[in-house]
Amino acid sequence: MQTSIHSSDRFKPSVLRKTVLDMAYAGSTVHIGCAFSIIEILAVLYRNHLRYPDNTPDSAGRDYLVLSKGHGVMAQYACMYERGWLTDTQVQNYFADGSELKGLSDSRIPGLEVTSGSLGHGFSVGVGLALAAKLRFTDQKTYAIVGDGEINEGPIWEGALFAAHHELDNFMVIVDENGFQAMGATKDVMSLGSIESKFESFGFEAVTIDGHDEAALDGAIAALWASPSKRPKALIAKTVKGKGVPFMENNNMWHYTRLNDKTHAEAVAAVAQGA
């Protein structure tokens, strides 16, 4: 549950979800459920943790947010829109011919650090960014958001070994554990067992929390960074795919279903009600 202490008018989840719905409707596109499960994670990161020294998306010395599960990019667009890094036109004309914002994270857009979409890439790029900060002795932090389905990919575990061996305590992987991947439940496609235990055994300092509880997210992120351990960090966020719209929640068809007039209106109403 959100608490009044940590809630804020900035990056309100209901507002972010409304932006996602409007973009998805305008672009007649998919991946809505995948964006909704990481709304609170991104809200908390943008509100309280990500540092952009000169308030521009490409600020020197910034923290890095790597959206390895690039198909959740509408959630990040919503945050970038609120930061003023995207225009009304870009949001309203999502997917219009000749437009720039794609359906997957593309690093040519200031504010997106990686070109992902092929899964298992962003994590390694993030490890490289974290290593760069260590080599330069800066205090920059790198966050890599991965999906639970995405961690089927082998390079994730290659990167995890490296990050732990090189004590990249400035690196945090956030696993969006919504329990689904494209074709079904993760437990049916490729059982993951305890993700927390897996990262622990790879040498990470790991914790599992409710990925929609902003106060819990905020506290867990702060606590992981405050730890004196030199281990890289893993935040396992238990989430709900499609969170915020009852008919989308835990309904995997919203990985690939497009909005029509009716479902858009109903979803917008549901999101407003949940505000």
């Binding site: 650090e113 298992g120 890439h121 994590f123 390694s124 790029v125 993030g126 490890v127 490289g128 960014l129 974290a130 290593l131 760069a132 900060a133 080599l135 330069r136 082998g154 390079p155 290659e158 990167g159 490296f162």
Partner: peptide
């Protein structure tokens, strides 16, 4: 695979 991805991250950082 991780090595080449990391190289991209390192190159991004200069």
């Amino acid at each position: 695979q991780n090595m080449v991805g990391m190289a991209a991250g390192l190159a991004r950082a200069g």
